[in-house]
Nucleic acid binder design. Structure first.
Length: 505
RNA sequence: GCCUUAGUAGCUCAAUGGUAGAGCAACCGGCUGUUAACCGGUAGGUUGUAGGUUCGAGCCCUGCCUAAGGCGCCA
């Protein structure tokens, strides 16, 4: 077995360069034997993340690394491969020389070819990368082709969307989806540490008027031959659930069931909206976090929202420094400053009525004139979060007429205990409210909205049996990831995005 | 759903109504430490699509398709 570390025959800087002061073969053999697992013939398999996080442990040792070629460049006698094994944002530089019998074959390999590399880890503190692997053996695990669509240069996000099956291999999406994963874990970690119970609310729902927009139908009926009632309508009694069913638009009402049993709960799962929305922040399938807190009013609610967002941001900043550096350099130069600001500063809190005054006194001419009673338009929300507060801001106590039936009526009888958290660049990140716990008030509100009470019999019954005050909110998880990464299109933070007229993969 | 803009080589983009071009990628060759390596060469086009105006259209006009940006709906 050859253990010559770095058989480069270069003469330039040979004495001075630390990269040429490789440990002796004997030294490597002795030290690496202690780290081998299994039989002596088994090489030490490593992952890139281990190498980066614990370089000193591996320095001078022989390791085996499996990964894909991100870039490769070679001259007559020496070549360089940047190998990515998926476990870490950064690549590992593999140096290979013409002492390898298959040098010429390796040098010609196209990007995305999968390799198994055996070689010694050499620390290179003066180079752009902290270490490299001096290959003694490289075998091809799976070859790629020259027409691989990802090139080693910047691509447009639009182009990458067209190759959604390959884009996770690009730098940006490697960073985005690792951050998404870490952020999701941080969400669970926060709620578990605060003694919340994780509830799996149903995906298929029987109530068709949850008030959050158009819903997707769920059915097993034959579309070409639907059974009809005598009145000529679709006979859902012969459908799978013997009633009309849809994909959920919110797990909130079900979460309330559990909040009134477990005190503090949260859901975290997919949500579906069949809205004809054509914006950079809407998708037909997205993930929502919906906590529900018993014995909690609107202020408790806001405190919890602020705490979880700060916790998740701080955790991602700590766990994903390489990814965050990348976003700051290539996506948004001000990202780190903005996120640090979110973690450190207090979120703004302003009532709807005060916000209207701020907008009216701003001296700005808005496309939609500002008037009490109107819903805030995007231009108003942006002005408040991006110009006035320059950080997340809660707008509270909206007029009841522009909010949902389940929100608790304020004492003035005209506003409800609701709040939206507006953040710069993303818009509405969280929608929240204290729920109407007073049975009579709730029934009256639903009746005045012309709602059919029957499907909500269980929701109303919760108010009869110890239905304490309680509050909850919904965080759009993708919008959270957008805010964290600086990525401005929701299609670029979802693995396989679904939007109107678009489901590629 | 509404408004605006765009569509040219595999990718990113040029081209005053008058001969369709560059960089990168690919392919061939060179190069002893590269960093989106570098140097030389080769090949690559029904200008989204269907019509129209014109002696002549990538460019002007109309429809359609696709995408992006903005708005509405919301998380």
């Amino acid at each position: 077995m050859s253990l010559v570390v770095c058989r480069v025959r270069g003469t330039r800087n040979k004495e001075r360069s630390p990269r040429c002061q490789a440990p002796s073969a004997k030294c490597i053999l002795m030290s690496s034997q202690r780290l081998f697992y299994g039989t002596e013939m088994t090489k030490m398999k490593v992952e890139t993340k281990q190498l980066y996080r614990d370089t000193a442990t591996y320095a001078g040792k022989e390791v085996v690394l499996e990964g894909w070629i991100r870039t490769i460049r070679a001259s007559k006698n020496i070549g360089f491969i940047e190998l990515n094994d998926g476990t870490f944002f950064r690549n590992v530089q593999v140096v290979f020389g013409d002492t390898m019998p298959n040098f010429a074959d390796i040098a010609r390999l196209p990007i995305a070819t999968a390799l198994r590399v055996t070689g010694a880890v050499l620390e290179t503190p003066e180079a752009r990368q902290p270490f490299e692997i001096c290959a003694t053996e490289i075998t091809v695990e799976a070859e790629s082709s020259a027409d691989y669509p990802l090139q080693k240069k910047r691509h447009s996000l639009e182009y990458l969307r067209e190759i959604a099956h390959l884009r996770p291999r690009s730098n940006l999406f490697s960073a985005v989806f690792r951050v998404r994963s870490v952020a999701a874990f941080a969400v669970h970690k926060f709620f578990m540490e605060n003694n919340f119970v994780y509830v799996h609310s149903p995906i298929i729902t029987g109530s068709d008027a949850e008030g959050a927009g158009q819903m997707f139908k769920v059915t097993t009926l034959d579309m070409l031959n639907t059974p009809r009632t005598e009145a000529g309508k679709v006979d859902y009694s012969r459908d799978f659930f013997a009633k009309e069913t849809h994909l959920t638009v919110s797990g909130q009402l079900e979460a309330e069931i559990f909040a009134l049993a477990f005190k503090n709960v949260y859901t975290f799962g997919p949500t579906f909206r069949a809205e004809n929305s054509n914006t950079a922040r809407h998708a037909a399938e997205f993930w929502m976090i919906e906590p529900e807190l018993a014995f909690a009013d609107l202020k408790d609610n806001m405190d919890n929202i602020e705490a979880v967002i700060k916790y998740v941001f701080a955790y991602v900043l700590e766990q994903c420094p390489e990814e965050m550096d990348f976003f700051c350099e290539y996506v948004d130069k001000d990202l780190r400053e903005r996120l640090d600001n979110v973690v450190k500063s207090e979120f703004g809190r302003v009532t709807y009525t005060e916000a209207i005054k701020i907008l009216q006194q701003s001296g700005r001419s808005f496309e939609f004139p500002v008037k009490w009673g109107m819903d805030l338009q995007t231009e108003h929300e942006r002005y408040l979060s991006e110009q006035v507060y320059k950080r997340p801001v809660f707008v509270t106590n909206y007029p009841k007429d522009i909010k949902s039936f389940y929100m608790r009526l304020d004492d003035d009888g005209t506003t409800v205990a609701a709040t939206d958290l507006l953040v710069p660049g993303v818009g509405e990140l969280v929608g929240a409210s204290q729920r109407e716990e007073r049975y009579d008030v709730l029934v009256e509100r639903m009746k005045s909205l012309g709602m059919d009470l029957e499907p909500y019999w269980w929701y109303l019954e919760l108010r009869k049996f110890g239905g304490v005050k309680h509050s909850g909110y919904g965080i759009g998880f993708e919008r959270l990831v957008m805010y964290l990464t600086g990525v401005t299109n929701i299609r670029d933070v979802i693995a396989c995005p679904r939007t109107v007229g678009n489901l590629r993969i």
